[in-house]
Amino acid sequence: MTGLWQSLVGKMMPSPGGIDCAEVMAQLYEYIDGELDDEKIERIRGHLEKCQRCYPRYNFEAAFLRFLKQQGRTKAPPELQRKIFKAILEEESRG
């Protein structure tokens, strides 16, 4: 039913941004990752601004990636930094 509804909507409404939902979904990660050229970015942005189906998906994926960036990182322990600076000094004195 959903599929039929979507295809009907797709036929009745022009694709926002001149790009259809399937294409936007296929390139969603590349869009969020900043891997697309300016023209593609504009088209996808234009689509997302108007498309009530794609925007929530975009919003969810972007939240997930922001979350990973915040939570996934660990700082190098100060002790390791100290050991490394010492090792490099020793390498230098060895010449």
């Binding site: 929530p56 919003n59 969810f60 939240a63 997930f64 979350f67 990973l68 939570q71 996934g72 660990t74």
Partner: peptide, 16 residues
């Protein structure tokens, strides 16, 4: 939870 607010409850140890 369309905005994925559940992510915020997950501790960083679990993510790692």
């Amino acid at each position: 939870d369309p905005e994925g607010t559940f992510f915020r409850f997950i501790v960083d140890e679990e993510v790692k």
